[in-house]
Design a protein around this nucleic acid. Structure first.
Lengths: 106, 106
DNA sequence: CGTGTAAGGAATTCTGACACG
DNA sequence: CGTGTAAGGAATTCTGACACG
């Protein structure tokens, strides 16, 4: 009725695994890094929402680009600022920023 | 992306139980009577959609009124014909129709 | 008809840890 | 850092059946 299907936490990790193609280890790791927040059933089983599934896929794409957890969480904070853009260009810019970051940092 | 969150089958029977308040036996029984059609994971575990959950609740309400499985399935077929109406009156009419049905039938 | 239950098995999920790098 | 894995336990889910009515 008044439910938001997209944000309701009802999916088990096994289904999330099928939906995202990620391993359970990878899925749980994102929780460890505070990038995603599944709920728990009374006995401790994790429950995810469709929204969580989408977020997991986006995070996985970022990681493939070499972006680390901290940067990903920072990026998710600004998420609400920018909405559109050129995906291809954006990715290269992120990598560029990271390289610059490492050069000045180390 | 192109997913329909409401009709995607991803919910385990345990969560459906919590969402509907029905017992596993009751939930499975509706499948036995062909009133609901969950999918299965590779190993046989049932997976339901939010839409299925809503249907289950509606079926449960009908049964509380004394409507039997066959009548419920018939009612679901006509579902697409009528959309609105007075719930309270409609229920009484259904019961009335059933009584009439039984009188002429037996 | 609709639902409870005991029965036994198969598969899931969880945590903490060691490993590699 | 991110991920694989073996380890052992706890809880889930499944089917077929007997029961009551």
């Amino acid at each position: 009725m008044t439910d938001d299907y997209k944000s309701k936490k009802v999916i088990s990790i096994g289904v999330v695994k099928e939906l995202t193609g990620l391993s359970e280890r990878q899925i749980r790791y994102n929780e460890e890094r505070k990038l995603i927040f599944p709920e728990r059933t009374e006995n401790g089983t994790r429950k995810y929402s469709f929204s969580d599934v989408e977020t997991l896929v986006k995070i996985a794409e970022k990681r493939e680009e070499g972006v680390q957890s901290y940067e990903i969480s920072q990026g998710m904070k600004k998420e609400r600022t920018k909405r559109e853009g050129e995906p291809q260009m954006r990715r290269k810019m992120i990598r560029g920023q990271l390289n610059a970051h490492f050069r000045t940092k180390s």
